[in-house]
Nucleic acid binder design. Structure first.
Lengths: 322, 322
DNA sequence: TTGAAAGCGCTAACAA
DNA sequence: TTGTTAGCGCTTTCAA
């Protein structure tokens, strides 16, 4: 390439990167002409190898088909794109083996930072930390390892949602959680707290096998068995949407027969039928914080707990609003 | 690293890659010990630079939050993971500028192949083709450029769905398409074909502003205006789910007041309320074909048109089945 | 303002 | 079976 333009490789670099040395207009011209003529495409691998930076971030989520993680991934990508970073999104499919493999693979690819939204609490991050690649964990308790964390106030969120159900004068309020993860546990605590504060007993506590539509639908039977609750706090929107469908199939209407409040705040919840009353996570803000932190101040370890807002719509039985 | 183990760098490579030369047990031992002790992590960038391969594929979709593309991305990732490849998923957000930027960025990163699910018909792929990086396009008409394509039989699919509505004895069947893309156009043709065959006139043809829940919901008003149809063929499931919500908000029930058939076949459609009758795309098969082709026989240009199957559920008015 | 050259970490051809 | 070495394509220091 440099030969073709009749200049040194250094010159080509100066021109393409606008620096760090100045280049005469004539030389620049020649380089640009050759670039164009040869269809020259700079090799990012060689560049990254040399400068020790890939401008790539990793994102590991359990399942990007879950609208919450889908929107999160989208938001992370937007934030990264805005500052010239690309992101590799990896679905661990709730398998810690697969998660491990991805962490290793991302480390090998020398990503500049990882955003980890993991189901498992115990992920081996030594591949990353040994290379001094910063990690920021989403929705995880502060680890033994000194990594930054960002999460929503899970307990408070579920408390808010449950309290809304209490205010609807329900006294048989159930809880539907997911697989036994920290998130699910914390949300359950918020639920219990709200009930306790209101002097009501927990009515029924169920957990689905996964955070999916199918799992949510499958649990409808169990929820309705025997002394059925009149309201339910659901740990996530996917589950809630699935549950509503499952209930409908059994002839139970939402909110008429059973009121539902969920957590997450995705578009899927807003457009479900009925529209879900939900505790919305500040998804875009979380994504921006994570990306910014990783890129700007990776060394500093921070722990952010963000507030989730109750968004009242139809599924709780409130009169429809626009 | 090599020094630390008291061996040559070549030996380290032989041990870590199991070849191409044999290594004595003693040497292997020493290398492995040093690897462990130093927390050595091989640099994939250097390796890729050397071997001319990154074991990474690119995937560009308009919007991975759309369940169809979300599931597609997931399926592509699964297929790639199975053969040791990673994938960079990029959302073009229906912006051809952003799509361009991503194509260039992926080319710079020297991906081994690109799967392109683009809305725009005219994407400049010279960055890729100049580097001899194979591209396979999803849902696109054979291009001027000789790139492989995989798609579902769009017209046939919509024809199948519409014919089902005809068999339900509807004679006021509308069509809801999306932004003016090839996909939307082909599906409309299938719709028109089915009506023509049945000797019925198209009743109303609408198009949403985007393939999103919100856009689907927004068009409900227009669909119901004046002489409302009794059935509607919708070009995609996101739109259909949004539409059902929108209709419900206006007091129209599906399928009672208006029957709906959609296309895509995602989990979201299966768990919507009512469950969507839909023409299902063979998502996993498309993903596997794309990945396999890119990795195994990138040089051969193929054009596959896959069949979509009508999946009868509730939204068309058929008696509920399990 | 430009050129020469070192070196990022790896693999593979060649030599021993 | 192992060591030496060139070189993948880039950036950047140093010298001119």
């Amino acid at each position: 390439m440099a030969r073709r333009a009749g200049v040194s490789p250094a010159l080509v670099s100066y021109v393409l990167n606008d620096g760090p040395r100045p280049v005469s207009a004539a030389a620049r011209e020649r380089v640009l002409a050759a670039v164009h003529e040869l269809g020259y495409r700079p090799d990012g691998l060689a560049r990254s190898l040399r400068v020790g930076r890939t401008s790539t971030l990793g994102l590991v989520v359990p399942d990007a088909v879950n609208p919450f993680f889908g929107e999160l991934a989208h938001a992370v990508e937007d934030a990264a794109f805005g500052i010239g970073y690309a992101v590799m999104v990896c679905n661990s499919a709730d398998s810690s083996a697969r998660e491990r493999t991805y962490v290793t693979s991302l480390a090998e690819r020398r990503i500049d930072g990882l955003i980890l939204a993991s189901t498992s609490e115990e992920t081996d991050l030594s591949d990353l930390t040994d290379l001094a690649i910063p990690v920021i964990a989403l929705d995880r308790a502060p680890d033994a390892a000194p990594i930054s964390t960002i999460r929503v106030e899970n307990a408070t969120g579920a408390y808010l949602g449950t309290r809304h159900l209490v205010e609807h004068a329900h006294d048989r309020i159930a809880f539907v959680g997911g697989p036994d993860t920290g998130v699910s546990t914390l949300r359950r605590e918020g639920y219990l707290h709200a009930l306790q504060e209101a002097g009501r007993p927990p009515w029924r506590e169920l957990r689905t096998s996964a955070f999916t539509l199918a799992a949510g639908a499958d649990i409808a039977n169990e929820l309705l068995a025997g002394d059925a609750p009149t309201a339910v706090m659901v740990a996530s929107e996917v589950q809630a949407i699935g549950l509503v469908t499952g209930l409908g199939r059994l002839g139970a209407r939402v909110p008429g027969d059973i009121a539902v409040v969920a957590m997450d705040g995705t578009a899927a919840g807003a457009h479900a039928s009925p529209r879900l009353t939900t505790v919305a996570q500040p998804i875009r803000r979380m994504a921006e914080m994570a990306v910014t932190h990783l890129v700007r101040s990776p060394a500093r370890v921070v722990h952010e707990a963000l507030h989730g807002d109750l968004v009242v719509r139809e599924s709780c039985g409130c009169p429809a609003r626009s």
